[in-house]
Design a protein around this nucleic acid. Structure first.
Lengths: 140, 140
DNA sequence: TATTGTTATACTCTATAACTATA
DNA sequence: TATAGTTATAGAGTATAACAATA
């Protein structure tokens, strides 16, 4: 039925909206936003990166990365280092504080996951994730 | 397992991000954004509303509604009418163009739902919607 | 005194275009 | 000539605070 799909679609949209709000508050307490947190996570997983690489990873403009890194640097989460081989480029890397915050982000993710999905039967959880994965693919 | 929950959580977050992007493009073509479209949909479902009611429905500040209605009015989607009983208040209502656009929004939703969830077995669809509904509740 | 909407101000996300320094 | 990052500019989302008119 088309209406079943529409219902699923509406839930997905509703969920999206609320998820944003849910994640915002704890991030804000640490001086982060969704996109700033994404920078920290990227650096945590990949190690030091050139700004251009960050733009590609985050799917945003290089100009935007400049701004994100600016504030992240002002707040002591990251440092800019000259690139050893390319004098045009700049390596962005986590500070100790940045690393600690990235760790916290990981734990916060697990915590949020448990709060939201705790008690959902494993089979349903798997189905949910599989369907989500499918429509993510269709949106790619 | 905590990791199953984390996987589901990650899918939910990823889905959220992509959903936003998916919906943006067609809206933009019609001179709309997500929040402007939300105004049209609210008016379409509820009939003419006072701006304060819109702010409550959308969960945003009255000031923000002023801005949304301003541009929506400039673009011919809505009209401001004096409230018959309360001279402080303003009734916002859809124009013909606004109504037609709200109709289109409804059809676009159904179309998107079919494209994303088409071919997903009904049982999985129902489970997806049910789990989504559950976590929406937990986020409320 | 409480409420509706607006003016004023500000912060964040995000983009494009033009420019500098380097490759 | 192509690339990395920055300056300049701009539009959207969103908020609070102060203020007007009205209830």
């Amino acid at each position: 039925m088309a209406s079943d799909r529409t219902r699923a679609f509406d839930r997905a949209v509703e969920m999206s909206g609320r998820l944003g709000g849910l994640l915002d508050a704890p991030l804000r307490e640490r001086g982060l936003t969704t996109s700033r947190a994404a920078v920290l996570t990227a650096l945590h997983h990949q190690g030091p990166l050139v700004q251009r690489a960050l733009a590609d990873l985050l799917g945003c403009s290089p100009r935007h990365v400049t701004g994100l890194v600016d504030t992240l640097q002002d707040d002591g989460f990251v440092e800019r280092q000259p690139h050893p081989d390319d004098r045009r480029a700049i390596l962005v890397e986590l500070t100790g504080h940045g690393r600690a915050t990235a760790d916290w982000l990981g734990r916060a993710r697990d915590r949020a996951a448990s709060e939201l999905f705790g008690g959902v039967p494993p089979v349903e959880l798997a189905t949910f994730a599989a369907v989500a994965e499918k429509i993510i693919t269709r949106m790619s």
